[in-house]
Design a protein around this nucleic acid. Structure first.
Length: 502
RNA sequence: GGCGGCGUAGCCAAGUGGCCAAGGCGACGGUCUGCAAAACCGUUAUUCCCCGGUUCGAAUCCGGGCGCCGCCUCCA
């Protein structure tokens, strides 16, 4: 199936044809390691994680690189404020990031290179650019000459002359053109520094990505990803310096994810309206967070709110409940050969077709929102089969139930959800919830016992009193053929109002 | 100012020329149940911000409004 990708360069959807038919070279800009990551960083990571997972499931051999910027102005500034070295600060934040990613189920990249560990490659790339007249040295710094690269502005759709009129040269910079950008920055006293042919200094921000991408993936890579805000100047500059150095196209498909907003505004440090990944993880299941992040197409803005996260959580629970029910149904469908009704045959065919429809949605520029729609159609069809299988057992349920569970798990695997055992997930969720309320299960089980005796005696008043007492604490009872089970009441919108966060 | 995006049910969100406008959350009615819950079934947008136009036919294309947002400086 041909995948179509919206290419930021050209702003159209194009058929995806990697340089080598079965291999995908992919690079995504990671974080600058100076502070905790928020849900916006999580979105970028999860979106490209899903791209990698999907490409791999389609049979591509994906080489995936995600870098860490571990030296830059912000890191130097923050390290100074905290009185630690830039290395220590970066190490710490990289560790936090890695922990966040592990928690979110984001697969590690094949290589996670750091700028400071690639100084020789960076220096060598800069030397090439100087030799070919695309860069020049001035007082120990090296700048890229934008004028020397006529295609500059093509990626971001910017007009060079307009950019030039708005740009200015900062004090201490010796640029020949206001648009020129630093490849190498001469160090100021007290700053971290590395040896170079131009004296001690450190790499500029953009050059590290070119050097590392080309080191691990070669001069032309298939997919380069990052947040929308990286298009200009970061990716424009990366493209210019890489192509100036090699004379070959740097990236075949540029992908940019949209922002996470909060109350309609971009989440950012400067506005102070950000919510860290860690905060959200403390209140929500990681897979619910993934489902939320994937609920909208990756290029559109996604508005964050507690209510929407709670909705995703409810939707996720529904999926797990369906898998758990299907398992039970499977064990009770028996050997009797009873034909299925038309609508059940239809449910069976829905279940058998969701993989294909899911892949079709994903092939259209990774339309996860649409793909999730198909997933839920599968869930409903599976529920229908499970319910009938219990009511009117027949061995004819065996195949669609088994296929349905397998299909749902497989496509969910592309999204990085439904990876746990359903019973374990549901039980854990309940135990976690009562633990948060400071309760334990013994009390609940005792109450269920009391109610069971009352019910046996047909004392409905007592039975209902016990049940409503538990319900007031947020615990719902479910009477089934094998006795009574308990579960936590789902949070509704009304109940989450004025919830955990302002 | 330049460039770009968005406006679909109570909320979230697919769909970008033609089957009844996906799916999720919520709400309501039904099946089930002692009553419930869960699940299932049904209902919940004669209509896609507004006004014109093109077309046999438009949420989808064109023109004009209105509203919201982003980039143009570090930013996922």
């Amino acid at each position: 199936m041909t995948i179509r990708i919206y290419n930021s360069l050209g702003r159209t959807k194009e058929d995806f044809r990697p340089l080598d038919p079965n291999m995908v070279r992919m690079y995504v800009c990671g974080i600058t390691a100076y502070d905790r990551c928020h849900i916006g960083h999580a979105r970028s990571a999860v979106v490209f994680d899903v791209v990698v997972r999907h490409l791999r499931r389609q049979g591509y051999n994906v080489i995936f690189i995600r870098n860490f910027t571990d030296i830059d102005d912000k890191i130097i500034l923050r390290a100074r404020e905290e009185g630690v070295t830039t290395t220590k600060l970066a190490e710490r934040e990289i560790r936090h990031f890695t922990e966040d990613m592990d928690a979110l189920g984001v697969l590690p990249a094949d290589v996670e290179p750091r700028a400071t560990q690639h100084i020789p490659e960076i220096v060598s790339l800069i030397e090439t650019l100087i030799a070919s007249g695309h860069a020049y040295e001035a007082s120990g710094s090296v700048y890229f000459s934008v004028r020397s690269f006529p295609a500059y502005g093509a990626l971001s759709g910017r007009n060079i002359e307009e950019l030039r009129s708005g740009a200015r040269i900062a004090p201490g910079e010796e640029k020949r053109d206001p648009l020129d950008f630093a490849l190498w920055k001469a160090s100021k006293p007290g700053e971290p520094e590395w040896e170079s042919p131009w004296g001690k200094g450190r790499p500029g921000w953009h050059i590290e990505c070119s050097a590392m991408a080309m080191k691990y993936l070669g001069p032309t890579i298939d997919i380069h990803g990052g947040g929308l805000d990286l298009i200009f100047p970061h990716h424009e500059n990366e493209k210019a310096q890489s192509e100036a150095a090699t004379g070959r196209p740097f990236v075949r498909y540029w992908m940019h994810n949209g922002f996470v907003t909060i109350r309609g505004e971009k989440m950012s440090k400067s506005l102070g309206n950000f919510v860290t990944i860690r905060e959200i993880l403390s209140a929500h299941h990681p897979e619910a967070i993934r489902l939320f992040l994937l609920s909208k197409h990756y290029r559109s803005p996604l508005d964050y709110s507690e209510e929407l996260l709670a909705e995703s959580e409810a939707a996720l629970e529904r999926c797990y409940a369906a898998l758990a029910d299907a398992k039970k149904a499977l064990s009770s469908c028996g050997e009797r050969d009873r034909p299925l009704t038309d609508d059940l045959n239809e449910a069976a065919s829905v279940v058998e077709s969701i993989k294909e429809r899911f892949d079709l949605a994903m092939a259209d520029d990774f339309n996860t929102a649409s793909a999730i729609g198909h997933l839920f159609e599968g869930v409903r069809a599976l529920n229908r089969l499970s319910q009938s299988a219990v009511k009117a057992p027949s061995r004819r349920y065996h195949r669609p139930l088994t296929a349905g569970v397998a299909a749902i798990r497989e496509i969910a695997g592309t999204l990085g959800i439904l990876s746990q055992d359903p019973e374990t997930f549901l039980r854990r969720k309940n135990l976690d919830a009562i633990a948060r309320l400071g309760m334990d299960e013994a009390g609940i089980l005792a109450a269920i016992e009391r109610r069971a005796s009352a019910r046996a005696a047909r004392d409905w008043t007592t039975a209902d009193t016990v049940r409503s007492e538990l319900e007031r604490m947020g615990i719902l009872l479910q009477d089934g053929p094998e006795g009574t089970t308990w579960t936590m009441k789902r949070q509704t919108q009304a109940e989450t109002q004025g919830g955990q966060r302002p």
